[in-house]
Simulated assay, not measured.
Amino acid sequence: MATSRVTEYFLCPVEQVWQTITDLTNTAWRSDLAQVEILDETHFVEHTKSGYATDFTVTACQPLCRWAFTMENGNMSGSWEGIFEVAEGGTRLHCTETVNAKHWWMRPFVPSYLKRQQKLYLDDLRRELQK
């Protein structure tokens, strides 16, 4: 199991950060995704540009405060939590992601993969919020 914790500051209102992250009907800003399939209020599937699908289940949704979910695909299972905080005229976002590799040979690569994925997500988010 690998865990990555990242805190980012965005110079925009918490409402804007929340809306961008939680609006699953508008994910074009995500450079790694081809589409998101919304199954119901708490279940969705992300499809990467390479065609890989990951299932998500929302476990917490406290508007403007906390969004969390579990995730699973053929290679891993895990969880993600975002804590949204009004700070210094903008928003501080605390992200915690935990991933368990399903194959023993993948375990050494999980920490670097996790860091790379979080960086890509936050870089994409920053670009979108600066528009």
Results as ranks from 00 to 15, higher is better:
93 L>Y: 08
94 H>P: 05
109 F>T: 04
60 A>H: 13
59 T>W: 09
70 T>Q: 10
97 E>L: 05
101 A>Y: 05
87 A>H: 13
7 T>D: 03
32 D>P: 09
112 S>N: 15
103 H>P: 04
40 D>P: 12
90 G>M: 12
4 S>I: 03
34 A>V: 00
67 W>D: 00
96 T>Q: 15
48 T>G: 06
67 W>V: 10
75 N>K: 04
68 A>H: 01
82 G>V: 01
32 D>T: 13
51 G>W: 02
81 E>Y: 04
51 G>P: 08
30 R>M: 10
1 M>E: 13
62 Q>I: 10
110 V>E: 01
110 V>D: 02
28 A>Y: 07
28 A>W: 06
58 V>Y: 04
86 V>F: 12
31 S>I: 03
69 F>R: 07
95 C>L: 13
34 A>C: 07
10 F>A: 05
4 S>P: 02
80 W>S: 08
91 T>F: 07
116 R>Q: 12
74 G>Y: 00
22 T>K: 03
79 S>L: 08
40 D>Y: 14
90 G>F: 12
62 Q>M: 09
125 L>A: 02
105 W>P: 01
58 V>R: 07
3 T>A: 09
44 F>D: 01
39 L>C: 05
51 G>V: 05
108 P>K: 03
6 V>Q: 06
102 K>C: 05
1 M>D: 11
27 T>S: 11
44 F>P: 00
23 D>I: 02
75 N>T: 00
53 A>T: 01
32 D>G: 10
83 I>H: 09
81 E>L: 02
126 R>E: 07
38 I>D: 01
28 A>I: 04
10 F>N: 07
79 S>E: 12
88 E>F: 11
35 Q>D: 07
15 E>K: 13
86 V>W: 15
123 D>W: 05
23 D>H: 02
92 R>S: 09
78 G>D: 11
79 S>I: 08
104 W>D: 12
102 K>H: 11
109 F>M: 11
121 Y>M: 14
109 F>L: 15
83 I>R: 14
103 H>I: 14
50 S>F: 06
32 D>K: 12
79 S>Q: 13
72 E>K: 15
92 R>A: 08
26 N>M: 09
100 N>R: 09
27 T>H: 02
20 T>P: 00
5 R>W: 04
118 Q>G: 09
102 K>G: 06
22 T>G: 07
84 F>L: 09
82 G>I: 03
56 F>H: 11
115 K>I: 10
111 P>G: 00
71 M>R: 04
